[in-house]
Design a protein around this nucleic acid. Structure first.
Length: 479
RNA sequence: GGCCUAUUGGAGAAGUGGCUUAACUCACAUGCCUUUCACGCAUGCAUUCAUGGGUUCGAAUCCCGUAUAGGUCACCA
């Protein structure tokens, strides 16, 4: 019987859920669900200086918001596989590192940061093509070690790479990939503070947690041989790896925190009124395409369709416009009830002239359902109606200055005053009546009134504007 | 610099030797609808697959070189 599929998303709690992190979590999740496996959420918190309080909880909860719900996490531990924080397993790493030392394939290294930097500079100066640790401490005697210790030096533990050994593996995304061990220097597996490095801790964790498949960012591709070396020494079977391409911005550069054109964090999208389903769908198609050219996927459809072999091996550009399009699609297809629940918090930010009941708000919200791309847009659109734009531009002034305009406005205002009920039919009839009485029609008829009411030449239908403003405010503005 | 990877329109991309005079979606343009904008609908948008060679009856698809871009070479993950 095949092993149960187990995958993981393992962020370091150095920040909030990032768009790229969400994407790798998504693909791992899809893979697990497609094969009825488990999706594990694990914390890689070995860089104690960069950890941020609260980051691990927000990472987890933003993921859940997106619909990517872990089967195991620090909140839902399985005793067989926990703990889910690396800092809670320090003894375990220490024990495995010692095993490697005892096997003679790992050794203490007493070199200081300065000595290492000097070594690197020397190698570079002597035309060495790639920097590798020179194994200065490989065969240290007990006396030499003791001497270093007396100087106050704390050792790291380095893994001794095999000689001329080819690490070959089948990458789920890229196909067969191989590296030669000669290109890789002996790397640190335990830092001098007793905490394991990433490349060591992942291996121990993935093995202990029985992880079967690892989909991760391309930046890990060249870490893979190091990790394979650890697997090899322990005689463990490595998981299957797949390296996804990175996300780049419009300039083809890797997404960085300094990129202000692209929102980086999930919470920012939530606050702006993006729907989790839309982001899920957008992320799904960032570097992955379906055979059928389908563009809109429910979660279930995505699970069924997903195949890591169809992940693109070339960088994916983050296209804001496409995200907007996807989100507006999902907004349009919300039921009126769901739409209202989604949009209400945004509408509450608008200061209407008169108090609005939920029913009234609901009616108003529906006017914009086909139009908005994000929840936050409705605030802007409504404010454009609720507040008259103060400085008219030349074109707008010209419309009001036209000799026919005062006539239209005056007649319309008076008739409106006598109107009992304001609704679509009655307002339309009013325009008809104004047209008949003044002999003015088309743009000359509608534009002056529109500009008088909102200050804009474009916007939603007039009866809706009047409805939102209320009769009293409308009359005031027509004065 | 070493190692690894990628390169199809404005963007995401399909394409794995003949069914491709390169699908589909977004963007863009035009037209229809409409008092206007948006929505919706219709139409248009790569003689060409980074580039130079080669293999083949036939190449975007296979091979080699060149260019460009990215990743990595930490006691960061």
């Amino acid at each position: 019987m095949d092993k149960k599929v187990r995958v993981r998303y393992a962020p370091s709690p150095t920040g909030y859920l990032h768009i790229g992190g969400a994407r790798s979590a998504l693909f791992n999740y899809l893979y697990a669900k497609k094969y009825n496996g488990d999706f594990v959420f694990r914390i890689e918190d070995t860089d104690i200086e960069r950890n941020i309080p609260g980051a691990e909880d927000s990472q987890l909860h933003d993921l859940i918001w997106l619909g990517i719900v872990p089967d195991e996490s620090q909140e839902k531990p399985n005793p067989k596989y926990g703990p889910y924080r690396q800092m809670e397993k320090l003894d375990i790493y220490k024990m495995y590192a010692q095993k490697l030392v005892d096997m003679g394939v790992a050794y203490e290294c007493y070199c200081t940061e300065e000595e290492l930097a000097e070594m690197k500079a020397d190698q570079l100066a002597n035309g060495v093509k790639s920097f590798k640790y020179n194994r200065h401490c490989l065969n240290l005697t007990e006396e030499e070690k003791e001497k270093y210790r007396k100087e106050g030096r704390k050792p790291t533990i380095r893994l001794k790479m095999m000689e001329n050994h080819v690490f070959k593996f089948h990458d789920l995304v890229r196909g067969d990939v191989s590296f030669n061990s000669n290109d890789i220097g002996d790397f640190v597996i335990m830092k001098s503070n007793g905490i394991p490095t990433y490349n060591f801790a992942v291996v121990i964790d993935d093995h202990l947690m029985e992880i079967t498949h690892v989909l991760r960012g391309e930046e890990h591709l060249s870490n893979t041989p190091k990790q394979l070396q650890v697997y090899e020494y322990f005689g463990w079977e490595p998981p299957q790896f797949g390296h996804m391409t990175i996300i780049v911005n419009q300039n083809g550069k890797k997404l960085s925190k300094r990129d202000h054109n692209i929102l980086q964090f999930m919470s920012q999208y939530r606050d702006l009124g993006y729907l989790p389903e839309a982001i899920f769908n957008f992320l799904f198609l960032l570097g992955w395409t379906s055979e059928s050219n389908q563009e809109i996927f429910t979660k279930e459809e995505a699970i069924q369709a997903f195949d890591p072999a169809r992940l693109s091996a070339s960088p994916s550009m983050f296209d804001n416009k496409r995200l907007l399009w996807t989100n507006s699609y999902y907004i349009k297809h919300l039921s009126d009830e769901d739409y209202f629940n989604f949009i209400l918090p945004f509408m509450k930010k608008v200061e209407f002239q008169t108090e609005k009941s939920d029913d009234e708000l609901k009616k108003i919200s529906l006017i914009f359902k086909q139009e908005i791309h994000t929840g936050a847009e409705i605030v802007e659109l409504l404010n454009g109606i609720v507040k008259v734009k103060e400085n008219l531009d030349e074109e707008e002034k010209a419309v009001l200055a036209k000799e026919t305009s005062p006539k239209v406005i005056e007649y319309f205002r008076k008739s409106l005053q006598n109107l009992d009920e304001v609704n679509e039919t009655s307002v339309k009839a009013l325009f008809k009546e104004t047209q008949n009485a003044t002999g003015i029609k088309g743009k000359d008829l509608y534009m002056p009134i529109r500009i008088k009411l909102t200050g804009h030449m474009h916007g939603i239908e007039m009866f809706n504007i009047i409805d939102i403003l209320g009769k009293e405010e409308t009359l005031k503005r027509l004065q």
